[in-house]
Design a protein around this nucleic acid. Structure first.
Length: 507
RNA sequence: CGGGGCGUGGCGCAGUCUGGUAGCGCGCCUGCUUUGGGAGCAGGAAGCCGAAGGUUCGAAUCCUUUCGCCCCGACCA
């Protein structure tokens, strides 16, 4: 099919499909046009995270890292390569990860005596070192976090949501008893839930995975599940109660205060660059990326407007003064462990202003300021927010002083509005279902939404539902995270159920 | 692993059926004019057509082999 290219009057620049037309294509387009990432192509299933995308990850890291430190964790780093034999020590763990391992068999020009696997996660190697480090109850709790890359040879990949290699953090902790380790599991689940809602403005449901959906090797997996605009669910973070499984597999024992040897109780928890995928599918629209201010690498872009060189000099000078004023503003929380200064970009490239507007909109920058001679004469600024909200819509012409005074409030309102609107989307879309007919209609074809349904608690029923409809049980909600528990009948079998669970198709 | 698609200037593609000087759009470079919602004109640079064999006077095009990537399923943060 011959392509005419952009005709006069047609859209220029990268094309973004609408969500209506082709949702997966829209997602890919937003990632590309937002300058976040591109498929590596030369390396199967991997992506290149471009500077704008990596800057978002850095903001995620900065905030999470502060939260981990505030809850007593320390960062450490363990090897990328794990002896193959380690993986096989925990029975369920092997079974879960064996199919997706990349294995290093040769190095230094010779075949290795024992192959190494490239870590798909680090429970095993960290378990090994915990075994060396922990001997007494005085060594506990051991609270470690690692920022790292991991590799899982997935058969089907999508940028950010599932790539062969991805970046994440993995927390690994060891405790003297189950009560304490479970407390840690729940604590970190809430650290994730709070972070995702406060910083990414992404509403989530906190819950427990079913036995068939839990982490390979865990007793229980807790999770946060996010609602994507196509109705699918995204597991945005997990916190695992590992019990003594890895303690036993790696012989991590300590002497308790009665002098007896016991195995430690461990936890692990992680979030990954997948969060960026969730961020995109929570807020972005047909014009491209939308970033909440707390994760936006650039908060404000100033587009100078001028005709002649003398105007240009005058406008750029004023833009620089405005930028300096804005960049003294700290968006951070009162008690935050870091300062979150406003970042402003002056776009003085030799392009038409209109072209710049579209470009920065595709990149999700929360606020644009147009600054021209007319504004300088009147002492005003022209402001436009990326998404119309209670924080402003359309072009607003504001007195510069008033604008500066209200700036911080405006961005924080915008942040809050993005969360509110995302919550409204979930509230409007979610359904409570009581009959299998309704269920089949709701999930017909590619359709999905958050459905609260009764389930008889058996793995057989869960598997049957998945087989029939591709719908999975996303989680059993924690208290207050779903409808109040009340007895009912299983959506499929009609057998007794204690409470409704969250069902949806998932990424 | 099953099904589908695609490898041709930086990007997106046409050309392949029917072999004959490698093309188009965008982007890029230079200049002038422009600049409050995707600029216009003029000039210019840039490609051993994924790789290897073969057929032919002649191959992007035909034949064989091969490599890679993407999309759709099964597996999964």
């Amino acid at each position: 099919m011959a392509k005419q290219g952009a005709k006069k009057g047609e859209e220029r620049g990268g094309k973004i499909s609408t969500r209506e037309q082709d949702y997966p294509q829209w997602y890919q387009d937003v990632v590309r046009e937002g300058g976040l990432a591109e498929p590596a192509k030369v390396v199967k299933g991997c992506m290149v995270i471009r500077p704008h995308g990596y800057a978002v990850w850095e903001k995620i890291q900065r905030d999470l890292d502060a939260r981990f430190k505030a809850t007593g964790h320390q960062n450490a780093y363990f090897p990328l390569l794990v002896p193959q034999s380690f993986i096989t020590k925990e029975a369920e763990h092997v079974e879960g990860f064996a199919p997706e391992l990349a294995v290093v068999t040769h190095a230094g020009g010779a075949e290795l005596e024992e192959p190494y696997v490239i870590r798909p996660t680090s429970e095993t190697i960290i378990g090994h070192f915990f075994g060396k480090w922990i001997t007494s109850h005085r060594d506990l709790p051991m609270l470690i976090n690692q920022w790292a890359n991991v590799m899982r040879w997935e058969l089907r990949t999508r940028m950010f949501l599932r790539t062969t290699e991805f970046l994440w953090q993995e927390g690994h902790t060891a405790h003297a008893n189950h009560e304490e380790s479970l407390e840690e599991v729940i604590r970190m689940l809430h650290v994730y839930g709070d972070f995702v809602e406060e910083v990414l403005a992404m509403p989530v449901v906190r819950g427990i995975k079913t036995q068939s959906e839990k982490f390979a090797g865990a007793l229980e997996s807790y999770c946060i599940e996010a609602f994507m605009q196509d109705g699918k669910a995204l597991q945005a973070g997990t916190s695992h109660d590992l019990g003594q499984n890895f303690g036993k597999a790696f012989d991590v024992k300590f002497q308790n205060d009665a002098g007896e040897l016991e195995y430690v109780w461990q936890t692990s928890w992680g979030v990954s660059t997948r969060l960026i995928g969730g961020l995109i599918m929570t807020h972005s629209d047909d014009d491209g990326l939308v970033l909440p201010p707390r994760v936006a690498p650039i908060h404000v872009v100033i587009v100078p407007i001028f005709r002649r060189d003398d105007e240009k000099a005058r406008v750029l000078e004023a833009a620089t003064i405005l930028k300096d004023a804005l960049e003294t503003i700290d968006l951070g929380h009162e008690r935050a462990a870091y300062r979150d200064f406003v970042r402003v970009e002056i776009d003085d490239r030799d392009m038409r202003p209109g072209a710049k507007y579209y470009e920065w909109e595709r990149k999700g920058v929360p606020m644009r300021i147009e600054l021209g001679p007319r504004d300088l004469d009147k002492g005003q600024v022209c402001v436009k927010m990326r998404v119309p909200t209670a924080a402003g819509e359309g072009k607003e012409f504001l007195d510069e002083k008033a604008f500066l005074d209200g700036f911080r409030e405006r961005l924080l309102t915008y942040q809050a509005e993005l969360l509110r609107m995302a919550r409204e989307r979930v509230a409007a879309a979610q359904v409570t279902l009581d009959s299998w007919e309704e269920f089949e209609t709701t999930f017909a074809g590619d359709n999905s939404t958050f459905a609260w349904c009764h389930w008889d608690g058996t793995a057989e029923t869960e598997a049957k539902i998945k087989e029939l409809t591709k719908v999975t049980i996303r989680c059993i909600p924690l208290e207050g995270q779903g409808p109040a528990p009340e007895p009912g009948k299983c959506i499929l079998t009609g057998n007794p159920s204690k409470q409704r669970v969250l069902m949806a198709k998932a990424y």
